[in-house]
Simulated assay, not measured.
Amino acid sequence: MRSHHDMGGLPAGPVEAGEHDYQLWEKRVDALMVLCSSKKMFTVDELRKGIESLPPDAYDRMSYYERWISSITSALIHRGVISIDEVRAKLADIEKRPPETAGEKA
């Protein structure tokens, strides 16, 4: 049985091969993944499993790095590195910020 994320062999349209500039938050997600995995807070396999476990509607709605941060967050909660209450508190803090800084600081 094929999972929703498994697009191998299916028509998906053209792949854009050009380079693009990464947004600051995307660079931070990548750095967070490298740091956490190097500190054995989770494995890359756990990151992949978390991404592949996303419900189809969430998987389709999220960007590449949004899937990563969702999986990283779940892995850190599962491992007890952070709590769901800490995540909720941080999100509430971010929502209070003025729109021009919401995506810049985390």
Rank of each mutant, 00 (worst) to 15 (best):
M7L: 14
T43Y: 03
V29S: 00
M41V: 02
V15W: 01
M41I: 00
P56F: 09
R97G: 06
V44S: 15
D6G: 02
T73D: 04
T43H: 01
R67H: 12
I69K: 08
T73R: 15
G50W: 06
L32H: 08
S63D: 10
L76K: 02
G80Q: 01
V29F: 00
R2H: 11
G8I: 14
I82W: 00
E86W: 08
I51F: 03
F42M: 00
V87Q: 09
G9T: 08
E100V: 10
K96H: 02
G18V: 11
M62T: 04
G103E: 06
I82D: 02
A102S: 06
R97N: 05
T101W: 02
H78T: 08
H4I: 09
H4Y: 15
G13C: 08
L10N: 13
Y64A: 13
S74Q: 05
R28H: 07
I77T: 08
I72A: 04
I82H: 01
L76G: 01
R2A: 11
V87H: 05
M62F: 12
S38L: 12
Y59N: 12
F42R: 01
G18P: 02
K40I: 04
R61Q: 05
R61P: 03
E95Y: 11
G8D: 14
R97L: 14
K96P: 00
T101L: 05
D85V: 07
H78G: 06
G50I: 03
S3R: 10
C36D: 07
L47C: 00
M33F: 09
V15G: 05
E86Q: 13
E104F: 14
Y22D: 04
Y64T: 12
G8H: 09
Y22N: 03
M7S: 13
S37Y: 01
D85N: 04
M41D: 04
